Lab assay of single mutants.
Amino acid sequence: DRMTSQEAACFPDIISGPQQTQKVFLFIRNRTLQLWLDNPKIQLTFEATLQQLEAPYNSDTVLVHRVHSYLERHGLINF
């Protein structure tokens, strides 16, 4: 699994950072998509996403918020 070119453009700090940071991003992105796909008729809020993310992935709330906002803005969740 890899970041898309659009994700890389929107998250230059992640793509240029350590490999582990990219893996954390990918986990948060994929898990958020999975959470929404589990029940697409219900809006997936940032707060609900954060509550359902497993530790330690829920510890970087800023990154979780950025990923959630990106997915929502680009019509990948909550459409």
Score class of each variant (00 low, 15 high):
residue 2 R to H: 11
residue 2 R to C: 13
residue 3 M to E: 03
residue 3 M to H: 02
residue 3 M to S: 03
residue 3 M to P: 04
residue 4 T to M: 05
residue 4 T to S: 14
residue 4 T to E: 05
residue 4 T to K: 03
residue 5 S to I: 07
residue 5 S to Q: 15
residue 6 Q to K: 10
residue 6 Q to A: 13
residue 7 E to V: 01
residue 7 E to L: 00
residue 7 E to D: 11
residue 7 E to T: 01
residue 8 A to C: 13
residue 8 A to N: 09
residue 8 A to R: 13
residue 9 A to S: 10
residue 9 A to W: 09
residue 9 A to G: 10
residue 9 A to E: 11
residue 10 C to L: 09
residue 10 C to Y: 08
residue 11 F to S: 01
residue 11 F to I: 02
residue 11 F to C: 02
residue 12 P to C: 04
residue 13 D to I: 00
residue 13 D to C: 02
residue 13 D to W: 04
residue 14 I to N: 02
residue 14 I to L: 08
residue 14 I to V: 12
residue 15 I to L: 10
residue 15 I to P: 03
residue 16 S to F: 08
residue 17 G to I: 01
residue 17 G to A: 12
residue 17 G to W: 03
residue 18 P to D: 09
residue 18 P to G: 15
residue 18 P to Q: 10
residue 18 P to N: 12
residue 19 Q to R: 12
residue 19 Q to I: 15
residue 19 Q to E: 12
residue 19 Q to M: 11
residue 20 Q to C: 12
residue 20 Q to Y: 13
residue 20 Q to V: 11
residue 20 Q to N: 11
residue 21 T to K: 15
residue 22 Q to G: 05
residue 23 K to N: 14
residue 23 K to Y: 06
residue 24 V to A: 15
residue 24 V to G: 08
residue 25 F to H: 01
residue 25 F to V: 03
residue 26 L to P: 01
residue 26 L to W: 07
residue 27 F to Q: 14
residue 27 F to Y: 09
residue 27 F to K: 07
residue 28 I to G: 03
residue 30 N to Y: 04
residue 31 R to V: 07
residue 32 T to V: 12
residue 32 T to E: 00
residue 32 T to Y: 01
residue 33 L to C: 12
residue 33 L to Q: 10
residue 33 L to F: 08
residue 33 L to S: 05
residue 33 L to T: 09
residue 34 Q to L: 06
residue 35 L to W: 05
residue 35 L to N: 03
residue 35 L to F: 09
residue 35 L to K: 05
residue 35 L to P: 01
residue 36 W to G: 05
residue 37 L to H: 06
residue 38 D to F: 05
residue 40 P to F: 04
residue 40 P to N: 05
residue 40 P to D: 12
residue 41 K to E: 14
residue 41 K to Y: 11
residue 42 I to Q: 11
residue 42 I to R: 11
residue 43 Q to W: 11
residue 43 Q to A: 12
residue 43 Q to L: 12
residue 43 Q to M: 08
residue 44 L to C: 06
residue 44 L to D: 01
residue 44 L to G: 02
residue 45 T to W: 01
residue 45 T to G: 06
residue 45 T to R: 05
residue 46 F to R: 08
residue 47 E to R: 08
residue 47 E to N: 07
residue 47 E to P: 12
residue 47 E to W: 10
residue 48 A to W: 10
residue 48 A to Q: 14
residue 48 A to D: 07
residue 49 T to W: 01
residue 51 Q to K: 15
residue 52 Q to Y: 10
residue 52 Q to P: 02
residue 52 Q to S: 13
residue 52 Q to C: 13
residue 53 L to C: 05
residue 53 L to Y: 00
residue 54 E to D: 09
residue 55 A to W: 14
residue 55 A to T: 12
residue 55 A to S: 14
residue 56 P to Y: 04
residue 56 P to T: 05
residue 56 P to I: 03
residue 57 Y to I: 05
residue 57 Y to K: 02
residue 57 Y to G: 05
residue 58 N to W: 04
residue 58 N to F: 04
residue 58 N to Q: 10
residue 58 N to A: 08
residue 59 S to K: 14
residue 60 D to V: 04
residue 60 D to T: 02
residue 60 D to C: 06
residue 60 D to L: 07
residue 61 T to C: 12
residue 61 T to W: 09
residue 62 V to A: 14
residue 62 V to N: 15
residue 63 L to H: 00
residue 63 L to F: 07
residue 64 V to N: 03
residue 64 V to M: 01
residue 65 H to C: 11
residue 65 H to D: 07
residue 65 H to T: 06
residue 66 R to N: 08
residue 66 R to W: 01
residue 67 V to I: 15
residue 67 V to P: 00
residue 67 V to N: 02
residue 67 V to W: 01
residue 67 V to R: 00
residue 68 H to A: 00
residue 68 H to D: 01
residue 68 H to R: 02
residue 68 H to Q: 01
residue 69 S to H: 11
residue 71 L to A: 03
residue 71 L to D: 01
residue 71 L to G: 00
residue 72 E to R: 05
residue 72 E to C: 09
residue 73 R to P: 00
residue 73 R to W: 11
residue 73 R to E: 06
residue 73 R to L: 12
residue 74 H to K: 15
residue 74 H to W: 05
residue 74 H to T: 13
residue 74 H to R: 11
residue 74 H to E: 15
residue 75 G to V: 04
residue 75 G to D: 12
residue 76 L to W: 09
residue 76 L to I: 15
residue 76 L to S: 07
residue 77 I to S: 02
residue 78 N to L: 03
residue 79 F to L: 13
